[in-house]
Design a protein around this nucleic acid. Structure first.
Length: 295
DNA sequence: CGACTTTGACCTGCGC
DNA sequence: GCGCAGGTCAAAGTCG
């Protein structure tokens, strides 16, 4: 997977001071051809290892939503990606529990085989810890990162994987701390950061870094059968209290199946029958309607 | 007792 | 070089 050296996700999410409300939609939907190509080669869910949770209609969805045509050329498992701000940041539209999401992909120092370097780094770090280390000359390499915003009351969104929290930091300019999680699966070094948007506390910004090397431990893929859209995390997320605090969005042509409250994004994505407008609604959940009008 | 969270300290990168 | 902020570690605490 080739990714581009990129800007930090923070540049887009903005030290937590930037929320969807701050994103000019124009830039969100502005991708260069090269970027598109890269994004195409690396779906968001590919990185998360849950690509099979998502079906392809999103492409059509985005195409039908008057999103710039190139977005509609995204592959099935590469959620329509959009850039926010810096050219390396890409926002996707992943299936996320609990709510509306906007996502962003960042790619820093990503090449085909970062694993070896990572191993070396790991060793260096371990040594470091033990022996009061010195700085390495190597610049730290980072996994590709994907961030998306989710409207949710729970900070830690269930995504089907097991995470261990390994840190929490106060974020500058934000009253909300940022939590750091690591995938608990051995040999899977995927990390994720979770923080609330400063400007919109109802939005949770989740940033994934790395790629899962294993299927979701919570629900075997096979068990997804029959529920094209039942993503693992829904299984649990549904049980968590969640209130969609978004004001009702009126698209005029949205079918009545969308209601405020719990809804299943995966289902929306995966069910060809689910209207494109639904996902438009999803998008608008995360992006103020006035911004959409700016298109 | 194992898995997980909390939290303070430390490390690293970056801008000035 | 310095200071700041982000990121990580690991000991201690908590929970089931």
């Amino acid at each position: 997977m080739e990714r581009k050296q990129g800007v930090k996700v923070e540049d887009v999410l903005g030290n937590s001071s930037c929320s969807v409300n701050d994103f000019p939609l124009q830039s969100i939907f502005d991708l260069s051809s090269n970027e598109e190509e890269e994004i195409r080669s690396l779906g968001f869910m590919d990185l998360l290892g849950v690509q099979d949770l998502i079906c392809s209609p999103l492409l059509e969805i985005m195409a039908a939503q008057q999103v710039p045509s190139r977005m509609a050329t995204q592959p099935p498992n590469a959620f329509s990606s959009t850039k926010i701000g810096p050219p390396h940041e890409v926002f996707n539209q992943p299936a996320t529990p609990n709510s509306s999401t906007i996502s962003s992909a960042s790619s820093e120092a990503v090449h085909d085989e970062p694993a070896k370097l990572d191993d070396q780094e790991e060793d260096q770090r371990k040594t470091k810890k033990q022996l009061k280390p010195k700085k390495t000359n190597q610049k730290r390499q980072r996994e590709p990162r994907f961030a998306f915003m989710t409207k949710s009351e729970v900070d830690h969104l269930e995504d089907g994987y097991r995470w261990r929290k390994y840190g929490q930091k106060a974020v500058k300019n934000s009253p909300f701390p940022r939590s750091y999680y690591r995938c608990t699966t051995i040999s899977c070094n995927v990390k994720k950061r979770v923080e609330r948007s400063f400007t919109d506390p109802s939005m949770v910004i989740t940033t994934y870094e790395g790629q899962h090397t294993h299927p979701s431990p919570i629900m075997p893929r096979s068990s997804l059968a029959g529920g094209a859209g039942s993503a693992p995390y829904h299984y649990r997320q549904q049980r968590q209290p969640f209130v969609n605090t978004l004001p009702p969005l009126n698209f005029g042509h949205s079918n009545g199946s969308i209601k405020a409250g719990n809804f299943h994004h995966e289902r929306r994505f995966c069910s060809p029958g689910s209207s494109l407008l639904k996902d438009h609604g999803l998008l608008q959940d995360a992006i103020p309607s006035h911004m959409l009008k700016e298109e």
